[in-house]
Amino acid sequence: MSDISAEQVRHLANLARIDLSDAEIATMTTELGQIMEAVASVQAVATPDVPATSHPIPLKNVYRPDVVADVIPTDKALASAPEHDGSRFKVSAILGEEQ
C-alpha cells in the first residue's frame, strides 16, 4: 500500500506546484513511504459502518445575508502584489489552456 515511487512523488509535487529538487524527491520518497506505513492503521478501524466526520461540531445552514460588506480598495489589494499594472495583478504568460 505504501510503496511510493519517486515518479509518484514527482507527480504529487507537480500537482502541488512545488519544483522539488531531485534530492528532495529522493528524501521525500523515503519519508513518505515511512509516514504512510505509520498511518496505514486507520484503514483497519475505518469499517464501512462508521460514518465520516468532516466537521468537529455539527452545524448546518450557516448563512450570510445578501448585503455588501468587507470591500477592500483596489490600491490596498494591489499593495502586496509582486507585480501589477495599477488595477490588475500581473503574472507571467500562462502555459495551460483556459480552465
Partner: peptide, 16 residues
C-alpha cells in the same frame, strides 16, 4: 460580501 456587479473597474468588487 463583495458586490456582484458586471462591468465595474478591475479589482473593485473584492474582499479578502
Amino acid at each position: 460580501a463583495a458586490p456582484n456587479n458586471f462591468g465595474s473597474e478591475p479589482n473593485t468588487n473584492i474582499t479578502p
